[in-house]
Design a protein around this nucleic acid. Sequence first.
DNA 1: CCCCAGGTCAATT
DNA 2: AATTGACATGGG
Length: 286
Amino acid sequence: MRIEFKSNNTILYDVPDFNLDQTFSCGQCFRWNNISPDTYIGVAFGRVLKITQNDGKFIMHNTSVEDFNKIWNGYFDIPRNYGEIKKSLAIDSVMEKAIASGGGIRILRQDVWETIISFIISSSNNIPRIKKIITALCENFGEPLEEGLYSFPSPENLRGITEDDLAPIRAGYRAKYMVDAVNKVLSGDVDISSFDKLDTDSVRQELLKINGIGNKVADCILLFGLGRTDVFPVDVWINNTMCKLYPDRCTSLNNVRLVGRELFGNYCGIAQQYLFYYARENGGNI
DNA sequence: CCCCAGGTCAATT
DNA sequence: AATTGACATGGG
């Protein structure tokens, strides 16, 4: 890979195993939009980024090398060697096909607070509406940025919020869960600043204190907000897929999480993303 | 009018 | 410990 800074843009050449369409449409993030065939615009960590892909070349518009190093390099998980990981996950013909299909997915390292709220909203919901609710949340309670976009509201931005205050974003019964998350994080009852130092099971234990967070949502936060690739979030799609692929192993819904861990090891979270993408691409017919 | 959507909670067996 | 229905909302 090569990095170049030219006319206000940071340009990456020859980035392997990275595809924007796959990365942004595999259900891990909700704030990126396609604005032309090869270009997306989105917000992360209070920054707006416009990014264009042509094969292995990526143009990050109006982005300094400092911003790339400080934010986007980690956010897009650029340093990780996905080639080696994919080899270890190709345990059978279906996984080979899943990797061939979604092999350009990068596990985004998102803001933890943003993933907490986003995946609370995701419960029993569909992706277009999740995006709509999060957009409304940002427009109502975030801070204005460029291009008419808004930051994701911090816990401080949401201090004192009530269910009634959240009514305009149309989150339904999830609004009370969001209020609980704000209160527990602001009070320090759930200390999200300590998460990076804690092991995966301890973080999960903390996350489960928040109303509206169960095992699946906690696993998504661990994977997409903390980079814990050793968790295997199980939603309806993954559950159905795994039960078809490995019927003898998958008994209960909770046990599928462990089966994923056993089959795919420390990178089972990445395997989960390949499977999720592949299953959805094929309408569940795997 | 029906069903479903990246689930979770609380009540019940 | 496992099962079941409610929970808001919008789209097909």
